[in-house]
Amino acid sequence: MVRNAVGAVLAVVGAAAALLSPFRAWYDTRLGRQYRLSELFGSGGVSGAHPNLLWSLFLPFLVTAVLTLAGVLARSRALVALAGVLALGFTVLWMVRVGQANGGSLTLDADGSGLAQGVAGAAGGGLLLLLAAAVMSGRARRRPEPATGPYAGHDAPDSPDSPANAYGEPRSPASPYREPDTPTAPLAYDADGPGHQEGHRPPPRGWENPGERR
C-alpha cells in the first residue's frame, strides 16, 4: 500500500515534468512544441517549420501522461513503465535527429544556448516514471479463501484420502485394502430357515441345541 502511494507520487511528478517540457526551450531557445513530430521519422531531417500543437512533440508526451494516469488508477506497473519508456524514447530520438541536423553534435553552453531545460524535463520525467514503476508493488493477488466447516484443513471421514474410516479408526497406510466406509451389521444364521445366509457356513452335522434336548 505504501509502495503504491510513493510510486504514484513519483509517477505523477514525472508525467507532469514530461508533459510541460514541450512548452520550454529545447535547443537554442526553440520550444519543444515547435518541432514537427513527423520530422523525427522522415528522411528530410529537422526543419525550422512550426507545426500545429497536436502534431508536435507535445503529442507523445500527452500520451505519456494518459498512460501514467491509467497506470496509477489501475496500479499497473507495466503501464507506468511503458510511459517512462515512451518519454525517454522520444527524447533520445529527438536528440539524434537534431544532432544530425547540426552536423552530428549537440552543444550545452553556459549562456543558455544548445540543450535547454525542456530536454532535461523530458528525460527527467521519463526516469522518474521508470523509478515509480520499480517502486510500485502493483495490484495485490487474491489469496484462496480458507476452507470452512467441521473438516476444515482435513479430509472428510468418508473420503478415500481420509486418515480415518467410518468407525473413527485410523486407516493403515500399509494395508492395500480399503476399509468399508459405512458399518455393516453382521449376518446371523437362521436355524429355522430352509438354507443359510450367503457367506456363512452351516452348522456341522449332528449339532443340536442343548436347550431342545429332552
Score class of each variant (00 low, 15 high):
A8I: 13
R178N: 07
A156F: 09
R77G: 04
G199H: 02
M95A: 15
T91K: 03
A78I: 08
G89Y: 12
S105V: 07
A185G: 01
G48S: 15
G104E: 09
R201H: 06
G44T: 07
T184D: 10
L130S: 01
Y35E: 08
N52H: 06
G149W: 00
A122S: 11
P183T: 12
A123S: 12
L67V: 00
D155I: 01
G112M: 10
P183E: 12
A18L: 11
A65V: 00
G44K: 06
A140W: 02
L53E: 03
R36H: 14
L127F: 11
R77Q: 08
P194H: 06
T107G: 14
A81N: 09
L108C: 09
R214T: 13
G42D: 15
G149Y: 00
V72I: 11
S76D: 11
L62F: 10
P186V: 05
R33H: 15
N52M: 06
E179Y: 09
G125F: 07
P146Y: 01
S76Q: 04
L115F: 08
Y27W: 14
T182Q: 06
A147M: 00
S159V: 08
H154S: 11
Q100D: 15
F41C: 01
L106N: 09
V135Y: 04
G125K: 02
P144D: 01
W55E: 09
P144N: 00
V9C: 15
A191M: 01
F41I: 09
A8T: 15
D192Q: 06
T182R: 10
D192L: 05
P51A: 10
V2W: 15
G84L: 08
A5P: 09
A191L: 06
G199L: 02
G195Y: 03
V92W: 14
A134C: 02
P202M: 07
Y35K: 11
G45E: 07
P170Y: 10
N209M: 10
R139C: 03
G153F: 04
L128K: 01
A25P: 14
N102V: 05
G193R: 07
L59N: 08
L31V: 08
N209Y: 11
L88N: 14
L93H: 09
G84H: 09
G103A: 11
M136C: 05
R214S: 13
R178P: 07
F90A: 04
S76F: 03
L73Q: 07
Y151A: 05
F61N: 08
D192P: 00
Y27L: 12
H154R: 15
G71M: 02
L57N: 10
A140T: 02
W94S: 08
A49N: 05
A16T: 15
V13I: 15
A70P: 00
P203N: 07
Q117M: 09
V12R: 13
A191Q: 04
A81C: 09
V6C: 14
S105H: 14
D181A: 11
G195I: 00
S56E: 04
D192I: 00
N209T: 08
L131K: 00
G103F: 08
G7K: 11
G193Y: 02
D190P: 03
P146G: 01
P22S: 12
G89V: 13
W55G: 05
S21Y: 13
V2Q: 15
